[in-house]
Design a protein around this nucleic acid. Structure first.
Length: 258
DNA sequence: AGCGCGTTTCCTGGTT
DNA sequence: TAACCAGGAAACGCGC
């Protein structure tokens, strides 16, 4: 099951396959039938919810927003009836506070509050607040919300960066699926089989190093980490230089839903 | 405080 | 010779 925090950036979310990963994430929080977000092909081409007024959000954007709120504010996703949020932005904006409460209990209160703030102030809602360490984030951040939210920088970091892959293989996968960010660093060799090639090994290492805030990262070390994935079935060995293959325990890389 | 996980770092030795 | 691969060993940072 793919954690949503491994999905990042709006450009990634333009990929319908990753959109499906969002659904998988939602399945984490309860029975699949109830929480499943039907795939919206339209949504696959949307811009990020962060750059769009809520009224224009698609179902996919709503999904993103919901995910962000859960992730950022540690809302108990078990309280949320995701099927109630299988709606577009217009429908979301027309929901009353009571409907939010019905749909998400106590979390609905905060979701409603956050939405109203975004509707009226956009993401500036998150501006001008006291320094808030992300490591300290917890449910108590609702207090933070009431008093103005997190810093813009942090907001952006959460809408772009911290939703990014925490694991190397997810980072690699997401890079493969993001032509914009990939820029020739990785290349599919056989997409159906999940075989890919590292084209620019140094660039890959550098990018991974940036992600981990480690400027001493090298392809030599990165590849050692990749080789550990052979044990766990995340990757399978391919007997060619710089070529890897996703294993049966890797997910989210398939292109079959396009 | 201790533990497990996912690396990171280093290394030896082998291959392309 | 440089770049890469295989995998052991130990250290490390982090979350629980």
């Amino acid at each position: 099951m793919m954690m949503l925090d491994s999905v990042n950036h709006s450009t990634f979310l333009q990929n319908p396959m990753l959109c499906e990963s969002l659904m998988s994430w939602s399945e984490l929080f309860g029975p699949a039938e109830e929480n499943y977000f039907p795939f919206d092909h339209q949504a696959g081409c949307d811009s990020s919810w962060t750059s769009t007024h809520p009224e224009y959000w698609t179902r996919h954007n709503v999904c993103e927003w919901l995910q962000f709120c859960c992730d950022q504010y540690k809302l108990d996703a078990n309280c949320i009836s995701f099927s109630h949020f299988n709606i577009n932005g217009q429908q979301l904006c027309s929901m009353t506070q009571e409907e939010f409460l019905n749909a998400a209990g106590i979390c609905g209160e905060y979701l409603y509050f956050i939405l109203q703030k975004i509707k009226t102030h956009g993401i500036s809602f998150f501006h001008d607040n006291e320094e808030t360490k992300s490591s300290d984030k917890h449910y108590d951040d609702k207090a933070c919300l009431r008093t103005g939210g997190v810093k813009n920088q942090e907001f952006q970091s959460h809408s772009r960066t911290s939703l990014q892959s925490s694991h190397l293989w997810e980072f690699v996968r997401d890079l493969l699926l993001s032509p914009e960010e990939n820029s020739g660093i990785l290349e599919w060799e056989d997409r159906d089989q999940g075989i890919f090639r590292v084209v620019k090994s140094d660039a890959l290492a550098k990018m991974w190093g940036q992600r981990k805030k480690n400027d001493r990262m090298t392809y030599e070390k990165l590849s050692r980490a990749l080789r550990y994935y052979y044990k766990t079935g995340i990757l399978e060995r391919v007997d060619r230089r710089l070529v890897y293959k996703f294993g049966k325990n890797a997910h989210g890389w398939q292109d079959s839903k396009l």
